[in-house]
Design a protein around this nucleic acid. Structure first.
Length: 546
DNA sequence: ACGTGCATAAACACTC
DNA sequence: GGAGTGTTTATGCACG
């Protein structure tokens, strides 16, 4: 195993979106990241101390006002000795800390790499939690409950948290979840289950491997697993500490999940309310107004909507989310550009519509497909694969909120497309004329395969990096390219959803256009990221063709 | 710069 | 005559 390093939020985003990891791997990754954060916090502290000492030393050297040069030199020497001593102490502490983390199984370090690069501490655990973790992880050898900061006045700018503090409030723990070691240890559930059932559902045992965080010991059968569990993960300081770490992880995830749920709610309500806002709203974050119509349509449409700019609506408090929310750039991709993408890459329109049916029905978002594609879809969805013009109209208005306005414009476009494209064949019927699709003609006019052009691929990846899950076109694009967005892919998988939410939270305030663009070419890719990229490369070689 | 695909607008013809 | 339907042309934009 290679040395894990702190993954940047952009990298994390990429990992999540490309789903290169299983939920279990993600879990391990999260643990590693948290351990690394803790480690970095300490590193920063060490560095700070070191700098401080350095400054003191320099000050001493430049004091120059000592009456006697000899005395000065003596003092400097003393200072240097003290400095060295402190350095030694720090190094020992570092070593101790690293060993602890290694024992925890959360960190695996190569001998030649005693330290990790100092990077800014990502948002993750609040200092209190870090402090508590610090105490819990290291407490088994250097317990000093009386002193809050028993390690060289470790200052995390928080109140002292005693390791004997009462446990956190009860957690909503799903004993089935493989992410939770505590439940399996503490719940008396076993009594109510048969041996077989328990074997099958024990969250700490799967595929012949112990799933205790950082363990992965191979256990041939269930009984040997139990033996292993009792011997290696008995009730001792280490297990308790690991358990608490896991509690923290779970708690953090739950907190973040609830945050994300709130955010989703806000986004949904925002989109719904926004659909009644003046279309000329200058708000750049107004997704709906930006995608409602192209300029010409919205300005010149004779049937402009009842809501004009003179109709004041309740001013919405701008959602002051981090840049992970829909950005101006991403919004611009939702208009005509989006439909280009989707049709260009032959996105499975039926799956996209099915997947986002509710969204399209409620939000006035332009579907990312051409009129021709939509008409075809409408016809193919019908039982007899034929529709009258009026039925096509009805399908449009039924399926898309977007087409409930500017009827003259889009209906004209529908007629225009029906006439223009050879793929639409008009058939005289008993009840009048109906339209059918000549599939061969339709396929003729569409390029079938995505090219291997890296710039195109990068475009897609870049786009989806800063677009929200609601960006249906990009979801479709991902689906087409076998890069499912975690939001869709994690549907029905609570574990993955919560993990994804948690990790997404890490990205708050950092995902913006610039960073997304740079994500692909960011220098200093970590070994972890290199591994992940390699996995993705293996799974999706077509994305890396040149 | 140019060709292509698409959306939009509009004019026109035809039918009911 | 008006509404709905179907055809055609023109224009502008984005993209390769």
């Amino acid at each position: 195993m290679m040395t894990p390093q702190v993954i940047t939020p952009q990298q994390m985003q990429q990992i999540l979106q490309q789903q290169v990891l299983t939920p279990q791997q993600l879990q391990v990754l999260i643990q590693q990241q948290q351990a690394l954060m803790l480690h970095q916090q300490l590193q920063e502290f060490y560095k700070k101390q070191q700098d401080q000492l350095q400054i003191q030393l320099i000050q001493q050297q430049h004091a120059g006002k000592q009456p006697k040069e000899q005395q000065q030199q003596q003092q400097v020497t003393t200072q240097q000795l003290a400095f060295q001593q402190q350095l030694l102490q720090m190094q020992q502490l570092q070593q101790q800390h690293l060993m602890t983390l290694q024992r925890q199984g959360l960190l695996s370090l190569q001998p030649g790499q005693p330290t990790l690069p100092l990077q800014s501490l990502a948002q993750g655990m609040i200092p209190t939690e870090l402090q508590q973790l610090w105490k819990e992880v290291t407490g088994s050898h250097t317990v000093d409950d009386g002193a809050c900061n028993n390690h060289s006045s470790l200052d995390l700018s928080t109140t002292c948290v005693s390791s004997t503090a009462p446990p956190k409030p009860s957690l909503l723990i799903n004993p089935q979840a493989s992410t939770n070691g505590q439940a399996s240890v503490l719940t008396p559930k076993r009594e109510s289950m048969s041996h077989e059932e328990y074997m099958q559902s024990h969250p700490l045992y799967g595929h012949g491997v112990c799933k205790w965080p950082g363990c992965e010991a191979v256990c041939e059968d269930y009984s040997s697993f139990i033996k292993h569990l009792n011997s290696e993960h008995a009730l001792d300081d280490r297990s308790t500490a690991q358990c608490r770490v896991q509690m923290q992880v779970v708690q953090q995830l739950e907190l973040q999940l609830s945050k994300d749920k709130e955010r989703l709610q806000a986004m949904m309500s925002h989109l719904h309310v926004k659909s009644t806002e003046p279309k000329a709203s200058p708000q750049p974050l107004n997704l709906v107004s930006s995608v409602t119509l192209s300029k010409t349509a919205s300005e010149s449409s004779p049937q402009s909507l009842p809501h004009t700019p003179t109709t004041p609506t309740t001013p919405l408090t701008p959602i002051t989310q981090g840049p992970s929310v829909i950005t101006t750039t991403s919004i611009h991709n939702v208009g005509p550009i989006r439909r280009r993408y989707s049709d260009k890459y032959n996105v499975p329109i039926s799956s996209d519509i099915a997947q986002n049916q509710e969204f399209y029905k409620n939000a006035e978002v332009r579907p990312p497909f051409t009129y021709a594609s939509l008409i075809r879809q409408a016809i193919l969805e019908s039982p007899e694969k034929q529709l009258t013009l009026n039925e096509i109209y009805n399908w449009f208005t039924r399926m898309f909120a977007y087409f409930r306005r500017n009827a003259a414009t889009w209906k004209n476009a529908v007629r225009h497309n029906l006439s223009l494209h050879k793929c639409f064949v008009r058939v005289e019927n008993v009840k009048g004329a109906v339209w059918t699709v000549d599939e061969i003609e339709f396929q003729k006019r569409r390029p079938q395969k995505i090219s291997g052009n890296p710039s195109l691929i990068k475009n897609i990846q870049t786009s989806h990096a800063y677009c929200t899950p609601l960006n249906a076109a990009l979801q479709a694009s991902m689906a087409e390219n076998s890069i499912p967005l975690y939001t869709t892919a994690s549907m029905g998988n609570p574990a993955l959803t919560s993990l994804a939410s948690a990790m997404r939270e890490e990205l708050n305030g950092v995902i913006d256009h610039a960073t997304s663009n740079g994500s692909d070419s960011s220098p200093g890719r970590s070994p972890m990221q290199a591994i992940l990229l390699e996995i993705h490369r293996l799974r999706h070689p077509q994305h890396y063709q040149t």
